[in-house]
């Protein structure tokens, strides 16, 4: 079997040059999605009327829609509505200036928020009810209780799942190439099409992503160990 190994080696730095784009998409959608997800989790934890119902439907729909569909909805749908709005107020179409990357980050953030909200909700639910009572018995407000007692514990419980979501985001960011974002996958596809060396390029790409995931898994496992040290002491 003849694999063009020189071509494989040459393609590694070219693909890795797009690593910042992949990282940008995964990190930003994790941050934005994480914040939105935390907010949704709190709304649902306190069972705020109407909003609780609304976000229940939101979470169910987002988790039931394939990510690719969400990406297309953001990429095709948002410009459509932005353009409609611009026409109605009589200004130039703003959507033309928005790069595909922004739609990708938007779609991945929305997607992540639904999963993160479930992670935080189950983490909060797993805490003993007695803690809330204890806090109110010493006169803490419900905000203080959440900020100082419940949330720190929920965070620790949530970390392994959040790490999995983040690793999932890195792999999911490959879909962005379908809306012409040049992250690592997009660069790989361009390279492969140019030279017809599909097998070589896709082996290299697969290995790069796999190594990235394994490496990050190791790093995060270390962090988890540190974060959960407090449990051992008790």
């Amino acid at each position: 079997m003849r694999l063009d190994t020189q071509f494989m080696l040459d393609s590694i730095p070219i693909i890795l040059k797009a690593l910042p784009v992949t990282a940008f998409i995964s990190v930003f959608s994790m941050l934005l999605g994480g914040l939105l997800g935390l907010l949704i989790a709190l709304i649902r934890y306190y069972k705020i009327p109407v909003l609780d119902r609304l976000f229940r439907v939101y979470v169910s729909l987002i988790r039931g829609f394939p990510l690719m569909v969400q990406l297309y909805l953001a990429y095709f749908g948002l410009p459509f509505y932005i353009n409609m709005y611009c026409q109605s107020v009589g200004i130039d179409n703003l959507a033309k200036n928005i790069p595909p990357l922004a739609f990708a980050v938007f779609a991945f953030s929305v997607n992540t928020s639904a999963y993160v909200s479930e992670v935080f909700r189950s983490a909060l639910d797993s805490l003993d009810k007695g803690q809330r009572e204890a806090c109110s018995s010493i006169g803490m407000t419900s905000f203080q209780t959440m900020a100082h007692i419940l949330l720190p514990q929920a965070m620790v419980a949530a970390i392994p799942n959040l790490v999995n979501l983040f690793l999932g985001n890195i792999k999911a960011s490959t879909l962005a190439y379908m809306i012409s974002v040049h992250e690592m996958m997009g660069v790989a596809v361009v390279l492969a099409n140019r030279a017809y060396n599909y097998l070589e390029i896709y082996i290299v790409t697969a290995v790069i992503y796999w190594l990235l995931c394994v490496l990050l898994e190791r790093v995060f496992a270390r962090m988890e160990f540190r974060f959960s040290r407090y449990k051992v002491r008790v």
Binding site: I170, T174, M185, I203, W210, L212
Partner: peptide
């Protein structure tokens, strides 16, 4: 197991779809 879980699905699909025929013609 680690490889199948660590490789993005789209990369795996392209690898199989384009790679398999190429592999077969090599063989």
């Amino acid at each position: 197991i680690s490889f199948m879980r660590g490789v993005p699905l789209i990369a795996l699909m392209l690898l199989v779809y384009f790679g398999f025929p190429q592999l077969m013609s090599f063989l």
